Amino acid sequence: MSGPVAALPLSHRFHDGAPDAPVLLLLHGTGGGPGDLLGLGRELSPRSALLAPAGPVSEFGAARWFRRLAEGVFDFEDVVKQSRRLAGFIRAARYRYALDDRRLVAVGFSNGANIAAATLLLHPEALREAVLFSAMSPLPDPPDTDLAGTRALLANGRRDPMAPLDSSEGLVRELTARGAAVTTAWHPGGHTITPSGRTAARAWIAEGAGG
C-alpha cells in the first residue's frame, strides 16, 4: 500500500517494502513534508518500507515536530509532548500496517533528527535506532533511561550554525552515558546531508541487520 493516509495520529505516507528489510521512519526538517526524504530512504535501504509522517506543529505555516521559542531555543515541554505523540504514532502504525516486530529505523534531518533523538531518549520502547542528520540535543536534562540496545548514527557538520557543535557533542554524550551505541560521521561543513553522511548511513543501517 502507498499514498497519503490520515487515520493515524499523524498524517503520513506509507510505502510497503520487503518484510526482511528494516522499516524506515522518515522525519523531515522544518518546512518540509512526508515526501521530502523518500528518495533518501530509497537510497539508504532500497528494499525497505517507508513510513513518512508530517510534523504536526505549524510555525508561520512551516511544518515542524515541536514548537520553539526562538531560533535554536526549543519549547522543551512541547518536545516531550510531541515525542510522546510520535511514539504513539509508531505503535499505531505497527498495528495498522502489520509491521509486528520488524526492525524500525528513524532517519531524520534537522528538526526531524531532533524529534528522533528526543524519542530515543524518552521512549526507547517505541524507537531504538536512528540516523540523525544535523541533530542537536533536544532536552536540557534527559531522564536517566536505560538505553542498552539503542543505536544511533549522528552525521553533523562541525561548522553548523543551526546545530552548534557543543550541543551535537552533548547529544552524543547523553546517549552514550545511558548505554546507547553511538556512531559519529562528522563533516567539515554546515547544515546539510552530505554524500559522506549518506554513505555512512547506508553502511550503518546494513550493519545493524547482523546485530
Rank of each mutant, 00 (worst) to 15 (best):
P164K: 06
G149V: 10
E174W: 06
D166F: 04
L132K: 12
E174H: 12
P164I: 06
L165M: 05
P143S: 03
R128C: 00
V131W: 07
L171E: 09
T145S: 14
R158H: 00
E129A: 15
D160V: 08
S167Q: 15
D160G: 11
M136P: 00
A163L: 04
G170S: 12
A135T: 14
G149N: 10
D166H: 15
A152S: 07
A155L: 12
A155Y: 06
L147K: 10
V131E: 12
S167E: 14
P140A: 05
A152V: 03
D160P: 15
P143V: 01
R128Q: 15
A163H: 02
A135L: 07
G149S: 07
D144A: 15
G157C: 05
E174A: 15
A130K: 07
G170N: 13
S137W: 00
T176Y: 02
R151D: 13
P140N: 11
A163M: 12
V172P: 01
P161S: 06
F133A: 10
F133W: 12
D166E: 15
S134L: 03
D160W: 04
S168N: 08
G149R: 12
R151N: 11
S168H: 11
G149I: 10
A135E: 03
A148I: 02
S167G: 00
L171K: 12
T145Q: 14
M136I: 00
T176P: 09
L153D: 01
S167C: 03
R151C: 10
L154Y: 04
P143G: 07
A130L: 08
V131R: 10
E174C: 09
P138C: 02
N156T: 07
E129Y: 05
L154I: 15
T145L: 09
D141N: 14
P140G: 11
A163C: 15
T150H: 02
P164H: 08
R159V: 01
P140I: 07
M162C: 01
T150A: 13
R173L: 03
P138D: 02
L165C: 03
V172H: 09
R173Q: 13
L139I: 06
P161L: 02
T150Q: 02
P140T: 11
V131Y: 13
R151M: 02
F133E: 10
F133S: 13
L139G: 07
R159Q: 10
S167F: 06
L175Y: 06
T150K: 01
F133D: 14
L147P: 04
A148V: 12
T176F: 03
E169Q: 14
P138T: 03
P161I: 02
A152Y: 13
A130T: 11
L154P: 02
L171D: 07
L132D: 01
G157K: 07
L165W: 01
D166Q: 13
P140Q: 10
G157D: 08
D144W: 04
V172Y: 00
A163Q: 05
S137Y: 00
